[in-house]
Simulated assay, not measured.
Amino acid sequence: MTIASPLRRIQRVRHELLRRDVHISRIEAPSPGFLSLTFASESLHSFVSLSFDDHVKLIIPDRNGATAMRDFTPTHINTARGELTLEFALHAHGAACEWARQARVGDAAVIGGPKGSMIVPTDYDWHLLAGDASALPAIRRRLLELPTGSTALVFAQIADPLDRQLPTSRSAAQVHWLTDARAWVDALRNTPLPAGEGFVWCAGEASVMVQAREVLINGRQLPREASRISAYWKAGAADFHETL
């Protein structure tokens, strides 16, 4: 079922919720703080992900032999080959990062979802993409999707310069690299925004996302219906995901 917003044309699409048994087919380290794992399975030939904002559940064993589940952005999908790539920000501590650091080609896992997609049109006048390391995979995917003639403003809180990597985008991308949360919030508050109709997407640590919402929606009075601000994680909590 698809529900379209008549004002902003955002579509919300539900998918059949499936669990797929997969195995690791390729491991890459694009930078010191990130690990890219590609999973393969015949079941991935039917995998559907329609939005950079999608997330799947990676289901893996933890150090105690129990089951751990964590949310990840599908960063690259090749249904013809039956492959799906997920990126892990290795600065984090937890079951998923520990598992990824020790992963070997052939290791098994289960992937669930995505259960739905929020499809944001690419023809907004500008796109604000902001977050910390946990948001960088989604930002990278969106930059690859944006067409020629679009404008992207990227605000990325990444401390290590070696991890500050973004793909070549057809959009006109204005990139702001910030080293800490305070500088990141200040940049959202003070950087001039282009004219026209824009869409705001932010993701990261819960308390910082509360500040982002205060700055962008209440302070800068950007329209709530043209924004998506999500807490991808919360300090001291496991398996946390919340839309603010």
Rank of each mutant, 00 (worst) to 15 (best):
W201S: 07
L84Y: 03
L136M: 03
V210D: 10
V110D: 08
T179S: 12
R9C: 11
L58Q: 03
P192T: 07
S171K: 10
H91Y: 11
E87G: 11
Q211M: 05
Q102K: 12
A231Y: 01
H23S: 14
T85H: 06
L162W: 15
V48F: 09
L222N: 01
Q211H: 05
L188V: 02
L44T: 09
A212T: 00
A138P: 08
F39Y: 10
E214W: 12
G149L: 09
W184K: 00
P61M: 00
G204Y: 02
A109M: 05
P192H: 03
S46Q: 15
R81D: 15
G198R: 09
T179N: 14
D186Y: 15
E42A: 14
C97H: 15
R70P: 00
T85G: 08
L153N: 04
R14H: 13
E16N: 09
L188G: 00
H91I: 05
L162P: 11
P30Y: 04
E98P: 08
A183L: 14
I10L: 09
H76Y: 15
V105M: 11
I24R: 07
R228C: 10
H93D: 12
L244M: 03
F39S: 01
R14L: 13
E42L: 14
P192K: 03
A226T: 07
G116L: 02
T179Q: 14
S227N: 05
S171P: 09
D21R: 15
T79Y: 05
E205R: 00
L144S: 11
S51C: 09
T151K: 15
P223G: 15
T75D: 14
S41K: 11
M1G: 15
W184L: 06
P74H: 04
P61A: 00
G65C: 01
R170L: 13
A40F: 07
L84N: 00
P223C: 05
F47E: 05
I158M: 06
A183V: 09
L50Y: 07
A138K: 10
L128S: 02
R224Y: 12
W201E: 03
I139N: 02
P147T: 05
A152V: 09
F88P: 01
S51P: 09
D239N: 07
V200E: 00
P61C: 02
T85D: 13
S171Y: 10
P161E: 08
R182S: 15
